[in-house]
Amino acid sequence: MGVRAPKVMDRRFFLKGLGALAGGVALAVTGLGRAVAGVGGVFGAALGPCSSQRRSLILHSLSRIGSMTPDQLERALFESGLSEPFDLGGELSSMVEEGLLGQSVSADGLIYKLTSVGPPAGHTSIDPVLDNLKQQFEAERDYIAQYTESSTGVVPLFLSIRRGPAILMKVNLIVPDVQTAKTVTRNWRKNAHRTHQAVWDSIGEGLPFPKI
């Protein structure tokens, strides 16, 4: 379930709204959500976004999508190609200290939200990407993928598909490291429905796929 680009400009999407922040650099995102503006990503050059640009992106993303975990913010900013990777944790931490963001806790861990300070205006051109992500995050509420640490040094991974309170499928895996866990987590979110179908095809003996 990759990030779909808006259907404009030959499947390229120019982030005009960020132009001023990015020093006038036009930003392009492919259909796969990858930045195509060179090694500097959407902000151009190898320097990456400056702090005010990072903050502006974070605030606008939260304003459009709503509260997010650090993992969701990472995906919204980096995997969608809106920005080259930067120290998101450090930026969030500073923004909380300065009262620009609120930090709360949910069962999924930390959650970041806007405070009354509000987001800066003028980034509407990236809204289609963010709206798409919002839909994706909502759909993923049924595709759960979480990993944690254990004292044995391996990483337990818990994957499930839910529909309301019902758990349709649950898979627990042990993987050797966090990097592998991240990859599997990401792929589960994209492919959980296909995995469910494949499992059923191999064990259902031709019976119809269960509709719950």
């Binding site: 975990t69 650090p70 993992d71 999924d108 930390l110 944690t148 640490e149 991240k182």
Partner: peptide, 13 residues
């Protein structure tokens, strides 16, 4: 305390 949740490290509270 909250255990590590994906990329957020564990923390005491």
């Amino acid at each position: 305390w909250m255990p590590m949740k994906n990329s957020t490290p564990a923390f005491p509270a």
